[in-house]
């Protein structure tokens, strides 16, 4: 509706342009691009995975990652990026919990509070987020001022029933971004007493359904999957690579679980032959990933030109 309103008020300008197009159509085979009155919208996606309760930087003990990471530094970095960028989404791909005594002492309270302070927009579940059981997670959940997204865990017979979301839609300067979450099979990875009656559903099927829903029904300009499936495996176990090539409509997979340090996002062609990006930034908050998407705002006029091209030609002919 918004767009139609815009069209109506700008009709005089619109008619003028339309006339100009009509005049040019006979000259060039594809004149539309030249007239696309476009405006670029920049979306900045910041992401982490497998931070594993790493609040302080790694201690200076001679270990490989000594002095790396730390929430206070990450927070400062995010603040400086937010000062420069209007449209920021801050996302996490799970395994927030377990790895330092902060988790053993506070059960995840501090991790979730600090993430909320940094303005995380969404996360998904990692296997270690169940380390204090479903109940242990629920107990801390009020500290998270952001949603936990999961499409392939059925929590209906657990204490998490109704407390998670399948997806979240974000609007940034007119763009619509759909985010959903997929988790790894918990059996064999997490003790049954901790995940309880959580049912694991096929991530390929659920991912496809959710991505199609977000892209086609919710008209998202970008569909992001927060995945804790793992980057890749030697065997056929479902991974981000398998997910990317077995689905449609996912533009970006922000992965976790395998603690993979990718130098840059990997591009995989999906079932439609379109690019799906996969990224993962190691673990423990050692790195912060940043992906900037530049959208062309296709104004009403641009859109119209593209849409009516054949019709106009017919008229002219």
């Amino acid at each position: 509706m918004e767009e139609l309103l815009f069209q109506a008020t700008d009709r005089r300008e619109f008619l003028k342009k339309a006339g100009t197009i009509a005049g040019f159509l006979g000259v060039s085979a594809c004149p539309l691009a030249a007239f696309a009155g476009s405006e670029t919208v920049q979306l900045t996606i910041l992401h982490t995975n497998d931070v594993h309760s790493r609040i302080d930087p790694f201690p200076m003990d001679g270990s490989r990652n000594q002095g790396m990471g730390g929430v206070a530094r990450r927070s400062a970095l995010i603040k400086s990026i937010r000062a420069e960028q209007k449209n920021v989404l801050l996302l996490d791909a799970g395994d927030i919990f377990q790895g330092t005594p902060y988790f053993n002492v506070f059960g995840g309270e501090l991790e979730l509070k600090l993430m909320s302070d940094m303005g995380y927009d969404a996360s998904t579940f990692g296997n270690h987020d169940f380390d204090n059981g479903v109940e242990g997670f629920v107990k801390q959940m009020h500290n998270a001022k952001f949603p936990f997204l999961s499409s392939n865990y059925d929590f209906s017979n657990t204490a998490l029933d109704g407390k998670t979301k399948p997806y979240q839609i974000f609007k940034k300067q007119g763009t619509t971004i759909g985010v959903f979450g997929l988790g790894i099979e918990l059996k064999g990875l997490v003790s049954k007493s901790n995940y309880g009656e959580t049912q694991y559903l096929d991530p390929i099927q659920k991912g496809n359904e959710m991505a199609s829903f977000l892209k086609n029904e919710k008209r998202c300009d970008l569909v992001i999957c927060l995945s804790h499936l793992g980057y890749k495996y030697k065997d056929n176990k479902v991974s981000d690579q398998v997910l990317a090539k077995s689905t449609r409509n996912i533009d970006l997979i922000i992965g976790g679980h395998t603690h993979t340090f990718l130098k840059e996002p990997e591009t995989i062609l999906n079932l439609d032959g379109k690019a799906t990006l996969i990224n993962q930034v190691g673990f423990a908050g050692i790195n912060l990933g940043r992906l900037d998407f530049f959208f062309d705002r296709q104004s009403g006029k641009h859109k119209m030109m593209a849409a009516v091209c054949p019709v106009s030609e017919k008229i002219l002919v």
Binding site: M68, R219, D221, L277, G285, F294, K303, A307
Partner: peptide, 17 residues
């Protein structure tokens, strides 16, 4: 129909040291 299409993207990774 959609009004935005991704024209390009850029990647950067910050090392938190």
């Amino acid at each position: 129909h959609k009004h935005f299409t991704v024209k390009s993207n850029e990647y950067k990774q910050y090392v938190i040291s």
